[in-house]
Nucleic acid binder design. Structure first.
Lengths: 347, 347
DNA sequence: TTGTAGGCGTTATCAG
DNA sequence: CTGATAACGCCTACAA
């Protein structure tokens, strides 16, 4: 009934518990025959070491903590999934902590598990506070950042500025000059001002010698509703833009909807480019910038694992590339019959 | 540098470790003054008990395990989120295990944490196997099911049959008689044959005295692409349906797209109803059945917590109500401008 | 190469 | 009410 302990295995195998322990932890100081025998017995008894008991003398829990904002957001989910994939074969468990609103952030940071509870942390899209960094440092626990940079900590990021520039360059390449930005409102979770996507947008315009216009730049939060409202404003201008670059696919959805309601054809009257490449983007034919979310999670987890093995290793700063995915809403190549997207007819 | 241990607190407070332990666990057998003093010292030293050390004599880890299929699916995410909300104030941690394909299921079940690793489990949309149930039973660990029923285990479910009937009744109420079903293919994760939604569909037709037609019933998996293909087939019939009920919003998306491509107006030529009420449904104006996913998670977690405190408690079987959300794709009532009309309760 | 013993931080029991 | 002290299951010197 009770789980077998290491002692049971030792007795059953006729060896000392030290030997069993060595076999299980793969120590080379065991005779080959002994090892085989012990393994046999352990398997037969269905022995599984208690992680709590193991954590005690080792001083390590084999648990990793990840702190992520807005758990239900597609971006977060994908990153988490990537982390899980990387951790799957590593016998580390993952504890996920979600920060649902900015006020919660400091509380969660403060409650970040004490050493012994957790062996390391992963911070996603969240700028670390000084105390948090100090906490992990003095505790000797590795902390890895995803989608955020910090000089002394390992990180995995995407160059959002370059990604945004890519998108806007694409629009310029199609001949657009009146290009609007539906950017994001100040992100309450990170401190990245001005926003990287906006910087990329401006850079692309400048490269092409296009004068940016303030009335073409709107910032809203990441929702279809907000995108919708922003687009309404843009379309109400005397010279409305012929193309719109959105800081998220969610906003782009709203932009498409507004265009439809105002009778504008996409991409004939107005081209739309989103950001992230969420699932529905492909389905709606939305041209967008693909952010390698899952890969970000994977690489971050790998970085953490590596730092765990080699604590003194200087922090890596990995930067992944985003790619532009051209679909129908930006009216790619001439001669290609553009389908109107589903979103437009439904509503 | 090292974390303070209970011994440090005891020494600093000038008491025995037993007393500190009692104070911290809220035992009433401590003098009020002693208690206050010990708390003070503990706070001052920033003492945090080691969960590993605590787990050892207690035989409980304070970790709960949740096994969920297809982690990235909206349904799973929402349920998990509900669970987290319920657990947030309970100092239990959550370890999430995802089953990404049916082959993985048994492996994950087999690896279900041994007692001592975990204090209980939550199974989402996954029919438990005999061995799994036995495993938890003999280990004396509570296991709660979400979105699945099993006589001897507590569960939280939604009556999918009633929910589906509701949707189809709505269509019938609008005057439709040629109503198609885009159902789900056999679910590799659960064993629910015939599918509850299909049963509900058939029941609603029968109640209304409508003869079900085999050619109106298509089963596909939960993807827009599959829904799209199914709709193409339906539209190719000599007498195509005037309404389609889909077993998921994902399929409904594809159905809408197919209708658009074939030049059918929604809802004038064909009405469409989805299932789940995913985020984008509201945005696309999709009439659908709202499944209380988050609430399912919450209630499930609460059930688990309760069983943890009271192990002998007979299993509760909680059944939550789904509601119909009428939006544009079913063309509600003439003149009625409401996006969401009165939600109707079921069950 | 292997067995033994001490210790990891708590809880729980049992005398005081 | 409170303070020792024996587990809890495992790891790791250390001794053999």
């Amino acid at each position: 009934m009770r789980n077998p302990t290491i002692r049971d295995v030792a007795r059953e195998a006729g060896v000392g518990i030290g030997t069993v322990s060595r076999v299980l932890s793969g120590s080379p100081l065991v005779a080959e025959t002994t090892r085989a025998h012990v393994w046999d017995v352990a398997r037969r008894l269905a022995y599984h070491p208690s992680s709590a008991a193991r954590a005690l003398p080792r001083g390590r829990s084999h648990v990793l903590e990840i702190i992520v904002p807005l758990f239900t957001r597609f971006f977060s989910i994908e990153v988490i999934r990537g982390i899980e994939e990387a951790l799957a074969r590593s016998d580390y468990s993952l504890v996920i902590r979600s920060v649902e609103d900015p006020g919660e952030r400091n509380r969660v940071f403060r409650e970040a598990r004490r050493p012994g509870q957790v062996d390391g942390g992963l911070l996603v899209s969240l700028t670390p506070t000084r105390p948090l960094v100090a906490h992990f440092r003095t505790a000797g626990l590795p902390l890895v950042l995803i989608d955020v940079e910090y000089s002394t900590l390992p990180s995995v990021t995407v160059d959002h500025e370059a990604a945004a520039r890519l998108a806007v360059q694409h629009l310029i390449g199609l001949g657009h000059e009146r290009i609007a930005l539906v950017g994001r409102a100040e992100d309450p979770f990170t401190l990245d001002v001005p926003d990287a996507r906006q910087r990329g947008y401006l850079a692309a315009l400048q490269e092409a010698g296009i004068q940016p216009r303030p009335e073409y730049q709107r910032t809203t939060d990441y929702s279809p509703e907000a995108g919708n409202a922003a687009m309404e404003r843009l379309l109400a201008l005397k010279r409305p833009p012929t193309a719109v670059f959105c800081a998220s696919d969610a906003q782009a959805l709203g932009v498409l909807e507004a265009a439809r309601r105002r009778g504008r054809l996409v991409p004939e009257d107005v081209a739309v480019v989103g950001y992230n490449d969420v699932e529905v983007a492909q389905y709606l034919g939305l041209t967008t910038v693909r952010i390698p979310m899952r890969a970000m999670g994977q690489r971050g987890a790998e970085l953490l694992l590596r730092t765990l093995e080699e604590p003194e290793r200087p922090p890596d700063h990995i930067r992944l590339a985003a790619e532009l995915v051209v679909r129908r809403t930006s009216g790619s190549l001439p001669g290609q019959r553009n389908q109107r997207s589903a979103a437009q007819d439904i509503a």
